[in-house]
Each structure stands twice: as structure tokens, then as C-alpha cells.
Simulated scan of single mutants.
Amino acid sequence: MKYRSVFDIIGPVMIGPSSSHTAGAARIGRVARNLFERQPSWVNIHLYGSFAETYKGHGTDVAIIGGILDFDTFDERIKESLQLAKDNGIEVQFFTEEAIPEHPNTARIHLGDDKGEMELVGISIGGGKIEITELNGFQLKLSGHHPAILVVHNDRFGAIAKVANVLAKYEINIGHMEVSRKEKGKLALMTIEVDQNIEKYVLQELEALDCIEKVTTIVE
């Protein structure tokens, strides 16, 4: 594994006792909020492995909800996030699961409102680093540490090339890209990590492509 700075080794500035259980958990929650694009009215959080065993003592619960409230890892309001969520009308439920996950620090976040819902699985891999491994049933690998574009598209010839051509047009460099699909010929998901935040007009051009269903971004 390559580290970009000393903070990748010693962990980020954060609230709480553990970079894996607190900072990583907050980042998983914040990615969920970013992808949902608004404050949800309800959140169900399923915790696995060591997250399930120690989530209250290590502050994993307040950290995930703090992230969903769009708080950064060092935001003092994380300590009061459960009460703040309640004050904002967000119904929060936690569930501890006995199933053995592939990674010990795993959370499944299911959230929504009267307009829709979303589900993702995130893991905290240490030092505040995370990976999102599933989104609405699509398998993916998203670090949450770089700007990214998530493109839901029709699984057909030329779709990937059309998206890549738009990014090339605006000289946007791709750092990592992968495609996941549930079933051949149906919907697929492109996960594209890039080197800079994407301007709105680029997203609009991507959304206008005839093969694209939805475009979502994660900003740095």
C-alpha cells in the first residue's frame, strides 16, 4: 500500500478514540450522505464484526451519524450527532449482526425519505481509510478519498467509451475505474475516481448521453 502523507499512517485529525472505528466510520457515513445528495428522514445501520462488538464504546454510532449529518472527522458536533439527528427529525436505528463479514469493520447503511432510498456497504480499513464495497446491490471499490463519478448506465456496447470521451474532452484524468453489473444487458454502474472535482457542466453533459440513467459525484 502506498501512503500519500504521514497522516495516512498515523491517521486523520478526528473526534474519538479510534481511527478505524471513529474516523473511518464518519467517512463512511459522509460518503453515504454525499451519494444520497440530501439529508435523509430515516437511517438503518447494520454493524458487523468488531463494529458490532464495540460500536458504543468506540463511538462508531455517533461517528456514522455525524458523517450522515455531513460533519467532517474533526467536527466537535459528532459527539452530539445522535441528539442532533433526532432534533432534525431523522429516525435512527442500529442493528448488530452476527454474520461474519469479509472485513471486521463493516457497516451497511440503509437510508431514505419520501423521495427514495439508498443502501451501501462500507468498510474501515485503518488509519481513517475506507472503502465502499457495495451500492444499491452493485459491487464496487470506492475509496472515498478522491473525487469520483458514479454513473448508472444501460449495459450496452459503447456506453463506457462515451463517458470516457466526455472526460477526455475536458482533460479529466482517470485514476481508477471499474464497472459492475447485476445482470447482462440491464443496468450497470461505472465507478470512476478522478484527479479533480468535476464541474457541473461536465456532469450535465454526461447525464445527456443516451445510455446514461443517473450521474452522482463525490467531491474531495
Score class of each variant (00 low, 15 high):
182 K>Y: 02
203 L>T: 12
126 G>D: 01
86 K>V: 06
36 F>N: 01
78 I>W: 01
171 E>W: 01
158 G>W: 02
96 T>R: 14
80 E>Y: 13
126 G>P: 02
31 V>P: 04
58 H>D: 11
61 D>Q: 08
181 R>G: 11
216 T>K: 13
138 F>T: 02
142 L>W: 08
207 E>L: 10
153 H>T: 00
57 G>W: 00
159 A>T: 13
80 E>R: 13
122 G>F: 06
108 R>I: 15
197 N>T: 12
56 K>L: 12
127 G>I: 05
138 F>A: 02
73 T>L: 06
91 E>Q: 13
220 E>N: 15
124 S>D: 02
101 P>D: 10
17 P>A: 08
41 S>H: 11
10 I>A: 11
12 P>F: 12
17 P>Q: 04
82 L>G: 07
133 T>N: 10
205 E>H: 03
50 S>F: 06
183 E>L: 04
148 A>E: 02
98 E>S: 14
172 I>L: 06
120 L>R: 04
136 N>L: 01
161 A>S: 15
147 P>L: 01
144 G>L: 07
136 N>Y: 02
123 I>G: 03
152 V>P: 00
23 A>D: 09
100 I>N: 09
19 S>E: 10
93 Q>R: 15
156 R>M: 14
126 G>M: 06
179 V>L: 09
65 I>S: 01
46 H>E: 12
94 F>G: 01
72 D>S: 15
130 I>A: 01
17 P>H: 02
207 E>N: 09
3 Y>F: 15
117 E>T: 11
25 A>P: 06
171 E>Y: 10
117 E>H: 14
91 E>D: 14
178 E>T: 08
85 A>I: 13
13 V>C: 03
77 R>V: 11
60 T>F: 04
122 G>Q: 08
4 R>S: 11
93 Q>E: 15
13 V>Y: 11
99 A>Q: 13
16 G>N: 05
161 A>V: 13
206 L>R: 07
171 E>H: 14
159 A>V: 10
115 K>Q: 15
67 G>L: 12
218 I>V: 13
130 I>Q: 00
182 K>W: 00
40 P>R: 05
143 S>T: 15
47 L>V: 07
208 A>T: 01
150 L>R: 04
116 G>F: 12
104 P>Q: 12
46 H>N: 09
97 E>T: 05
196 Q>S: 15
75 D>Y: 13
3 Y>E: 11
216 T>N: 12
10 I>Y: 14
111 L>K: 02
179 V>F: 00
189 L>K: 03
113 D>P: 09
20 S>Y: 03
178 E>C: 00
143 S>H: 09
13 V>W: 04
73 T>C: 14
55 Y>L: 10
75 D>I: 13
149 I>A: 03
182 K>I: 00
13 V>P: 11
209 L>T: 08
21 H>W: 01
43 V>Y: 07
117 E>S: 15
164 A>G: 07
32 A>S: 07
207 E>G: 05
103 H>N: 13
116 G>Y: 12
164 A>N: 10
213 E>D: 14
129 K>T: 00
30 R>Y: 06
37 E>F: 02
150 L>M: 07
65 I>N: 03
14 M>V: 01
137 G>C: 05
214 K>I: 05
109 I>A: 04
29 G>K: 08
44 N>V: 12
30 R>H: 08
162 K>L: 11
9 I>S: 08
13 V>R: 14
110 H>C: 07
203 L>K: 09
199 E>M: 11
20 S>N: 10
145 H>I: 05
77 R>M: 12
217 T>F: 02
146 H>P: 01
